[in-house]
Design a protein around this nucleic acid. Sequence first.
RNA 1: GUCUCCGUAGCUCAGCUGGAUAGAGCAUACGCCUUCUAAGCGUACGGUCGAGUGUUCGAAUCACUCCGGGGACACCA
Length: 552
Amino acid sequence: MKNKIISDIASLLNVDKDLVKIEYPKDRTFGDYAIPCFQFSKELHKSPIEIANYLKENLNYESNVVNGYLNIFMNKVETTKSVISTILAEKDDYGNNSYGAGKNIVIEYSSPNVAKPFGMGHLRSTVIGQALNNISKKCGYNVTSINYLGDYGTQFGKLIYAYKKWGNEDALNESPLDELKRVYVKFHEEAEKDPSLDDEGRMWFKKLEENDEEALKYWKYFKEVSIKEFQKTYDLLNINKFDSYEGESYYKDKMDPVIDELESKNLLKISEGATIVELDGIVPALIKRSDGASLYITRDIAALLDRKKRYNFDEILYVVGNEQSLHFEQVKQIINKLGYDFSENVKHIGFGMLLLNGKKMSTRHGKSVILKDVLDESIDLAKKYILEKNPNIDNINEVSKKIGVGAVIFNDLKNYRINDIEFNLEDTLRFEGNTGPYLQYTYARINSLLSNKQNIDFTYDNIDIDENKWNLIWSLAKYEETIITAKENNDPSIIAKYLLDLAADFNKFYAHERIVDDNVNYAEFKLSLCEAVAIVIKNGLGLLNIDVIKQM
RNA sequence: GUCUCCGUAGCUCAGCUGGAUAGAGCAUACGCCUUCUAAGCGUACGGUCGAGUGUUCGAAUCACUCCGGGGACACCA
């Protein structure tokens, strides 16, 4: 429809299609679409009002002219028929589109560190990445999800040394991650007093790189127990599996060819004993330490080239915190300098930090906040609130899990991802206002209405589509383009905001008239509208990886 | 110091590929359940869009400068 209006106007005015802008009026009573006519003035040498009036006279749409805008009104009955019948027919498939059809997209996200607790620091990457995964699939992309586990690096040298020195096997068997965390924290405390420990750690990492048997044995064990532990958190978040769990270690033997390639293209320089690549406008990238050991960026380049070969992606998303933006700039420049042409399809999907009382949630010195603990706490709090509202509820454990976890996810996704967010469990779980529970409540309310639906054919004769209903229907009609906008911006918050608006439209409609009407035909129409809303809320929350609840 | 992100109502934030009187939620005050879940709906209160200059028919939105805050910046990832 949008495209048809644009081409109609472009051909009528004989201007380029790109010059025609179509937007939604600020005030919904102005119209359904608005075409500002100011930009045509220059080219056509007429006033915007004249042009708008000319369009009104010559286009076959119901419209009016205000302040240089042409406001277009849709045929309410026809649009309503089409929207409701489409949604009820397509259900979970409503909003599926071909924006990314035939394209491969690789998304790297979550990426917790082996041998460390799955901390809050990885929450944002996990939920944003999973949402982008769902959204991309909805847009027709062939998605490959990668959990780039932090299973390699100097910290493993430190950890092996620390475990050998202070570790306790019984404790390790009982609660592996706690014991590993304990010795790791111990290492940092001791290293502050005795810096030579850092050298020991580096030495053990070097052994690991050289496939030393003892080092490898510890490393494998640490990884194994960690992955088992992580899955408990993923289960809570409804994340089944990733297409790949190849972590940094996978690229252990794939870095030398990259270094050779850099060498052969004369990009390497030695500076202060380290091997670097000089870049344009930004600081040089350190490829090898002065002791010859590899660094993060070297692996990332190896991984990127490897993934390009294996997945032949059209686009690759790295869902990693804002603080790494320089790193990804370096990676892209190096790829360019190596002569590859896909660096513009490498996208760093940055996000702000989670703050606790205005401060960063830290992982150093054992102060990390464990994600699973927070989710469990959220579930408990949700349970308490739900029982206050509805003491006789069925399936309290399942409901509080869905609300508690959903609230945490929604809180993370509702704002533009670049911004920092203050994490406050009380606010996150508020059952009023712009929250996950508000959406789940709206869904449950509709669900209870739907028991009155008879699933009979109804007609649109004598059906009054007033302002509240029309706003709701028009919102439903915008779902698909909202998904595409979310993908274009790689920003799940666009969906979250849409759902809040949709729920507000529904609740307004619900508050102002009775749905189960004495007139059976009218009731059936309204219940069909309600069902359509429920389908879209479920569908949209699904994209955010949040479950709905039938009763709460 | 350099680069970068951010600065909108008391608080948390939308709006930012320029467009019509700057919008929500929370908080505060009041109102709406003998009928579908009041976890809802409504009314009121609340803004020099950090400051300034410029570009434009038009700037919260773009450019530049300044102020304030966060982050990154060589052997961590």
